[in-house]
Computed example of a mutant assay.
Amino acid sequence: MFRYLFLLILPFLVIACTEQVKLDVSGVGETMPQSPTAITWDGKNLIVGKEGLIAFIDNIDTATAGSIYNYEGHYFFDRYPITITSRDNPAYITGLAWQKTVGSTGYIWVADSANKRILKVTPQGDILKKLPLGKIYPEDMTFDGEYLWIADSKREKIFKITPEDGSVIAEYLSPIKLPTAIAWDGKYLIIAGIIDPLNPSSSTDNVRIIRLDTVTGKVIEEIPNSRYLSSPAGMVWIDGKLWISDRNSGYIVRISDWGSPIVDEKTYKLAEVPSTIKKVEIKEKQKADKDVEEAKRAAEEAKKAAEEAKRAAEAAKKAFELQQKK
Rank of each mutant, 00 (worst) to 15 (best):
K154A: 07
R155L: 11
R155M: 12
R155A: 13
R155G: 04
K157N: 13
I158S: 15
I158P: 13
F159A: 05
K160I: 08
I161V: 14
T162W: 03
T162G: 15
T162M: 07
P163E: 15
E164F: 05
S167A: 14
V168A: 01
I169A: 11
I169D: 09
A170P: 04
A170C: 14
A170G: 10
A170M: 12
E171D: 01
S174G: 04
I176G: 10
I176N: 12
I176M: 13
K177P: 00
L178F: 10
L178C: 04
L178Q: 11
T180M: 14
T180Y: 11
T180N: 14
T180G: 11
I182T: 07
A183K: 07
W184C: 14
W184M: 11
K187H: 12
L189F: 03
L189H: 05
L189Y: 06
I190C: 08
I190R: 07
I191L: 15
I191Q: 13
A192D: 09
G193L: 06
I195D: 11
D196Q: 04
D196M: 05
D196Y: 03
P197K: 03
N199V: 02
S202A: 10
D205G: 09
D205K: 06
V207Q: 09
R208Y: 11
R208A: 14
R208C: 06
I210K: 14
I210Q: 11
I210M: 12
I210H: 03
R211N: 06
R211D: 03
R211Y: 03
L212D: 01
L212T: 02
D213L: 03
T214N: 04
T216H: 07
T216C: 01
T216G: 06
G217D: 09
K218W: 05
I220C: 01
I220F: 00
E221Q: 15
I223S: 01
I223H: 02
P224N: 09
P224H: 05
N225P: 07
N225T: 15
S226C: 04
S226T: 00
S226H: 00
R227Q: 06
R227G: 05
L229T: 10
S230P: 01
S231C: 12
P232F: 04
P232V: 08
A233Q: 12
A233G: 14
M235Y: 05
W237E: 08
W237Y: 07
D239F: 13
G240K: 09
K241R: 07
W243K: 06
S245K: 11
R247A: 15
N248H: 01
S249L: 02
G250A: 06
G250D: 03
I252L: 09
R254W: 00
D257Q: 08
D257V: 03
D257R: 06
W258L: 08
G259P: 09
P261E: 09
I262Y: 04
I262N: 02
Y268G: 10
K269S: 14
L270M: 15
E272K: 10
E272V: 10
P274Y: 02
T276W: 01
K278D: 02
K279W: 03
K279S: 09
K279Y: 13
V280F: 11
E281I: 06
I282M: 13
I282K: 15
K283P: 01
E284V: 15
